[in-house]
């Protein structure tokens, strides 16, 4: 498969280990500019490991990760993200003893400070709840607010590629809808490229242009969101009761 010019992220044969335990067994996938791509898979399939491997923690033992034409496989994390990748990681990882504002300032750590106010206004427009909580400590926010903050913090770095690891986990359906609407708006209005990992397959596949299914460290299926939603294997494994 050749690297197309519109490919922003290309993962080739990536294998990741935790010590001797293998978590990714040769993953291949592409994310093109302007796309929302999702990867669904059961708990423990290796989704978060892939997200973190893209960011270099842990690093892939074999294979290659090409971002924007550059091999980033073995770069240190801070250099990878400085090229325009932002992640809202599994578990949100909000700094608990920092305020909402400070968390957002951390997100903008690599951005020209003169752009801060403008970017802040943007994320507050997307998530008005955060504005009300601007001086509250991260650790005291509700789950939904923390998720919004994690996404907002990622956006503050002005990313070209946004990685979202299970943003719907543990949240009420209404909040999930808000968050997914925000992701769609970012993609449609700003052309932001999004790579979204989810267990909540129904919403994710509806939202995404294309999707992959991961089982036990391998990609087992891929296709457009609509195609995957129709596949019997997907419905049986990931959509039981998921359509709320």
């Amino acid at each position: 498969m050749s690297t197309r010019t519109d490919t922003l992220l290309s993962v080739r044969g990536v294998e990741t280990y935790y010590g001797k335990i293998v978590a990714l067994r040769g993953v291949d996938l592409d994310v093109h500019r302007g796309e929302i791509v999702t990867m669904i898979g059961a708990n423990g399939a290796g989704k978060s490991t892939l997200m973190m491997t893209i960011c270099g923690q842990p690093q892939a033992r074999n294979g290659q990760i090409i971002y924007d034409g550059q091999d980033i496989t073995l770069m240190p994390t801070h250099e990878i993200v400085s090229r325009g990748i932002a992640q809202s990681p599994e578990g949100r990882r909000i700094f608990p003893r920092m305020t909402v504002l400070e968390n957002l300032q951390m997100g903008a750590a690599l951005v020209d400070p003169s752009l801060f106010d403008e970017d802040l206004a943007k994320v507050f427009k997307l998530f008005p709840r955060l504005k009300e909580r601007i001086n509250q400590r991260g650790g005291t926010l509700s789950g939904g607010e923390q998720q919004m903050l994690a996404i907002a913090r990622a956006l503050m770095s002005r990313p070209k590629l946004l990685l979202l690891d299970e943003p719907s986990l543990g949240l009420a359906p209404l909040i999930v809808k808000q968050i997914f609407d925000a992701i769609r708006a970012l993609n449609e209005e700003e052309g932001l490229t999004v790579f979204l990992v989810e267990q909540n397959a129904f919403h994710a596949l509806k939202l995404a242009h294309r999707g992959y299914v991961m089982v036990n460290g391998n990609i087992t299926m891929s296709g457009t969101g609509a195609e995957l939603l129709k596949r019997e294997e997907v419905r049986a494994a990931y959509l039981e009761g998921g359509r709320h």
Partner: peptide, 12 residues
């Protein structure tokens, strides 16, 4: 508070 997260935000 969270070294890994700090690195994900570009902190060396």
């Amino acid at each position: 508070q969270d070294r890994k997260m700090a690195s994900l935000l570009g902190i060396n």
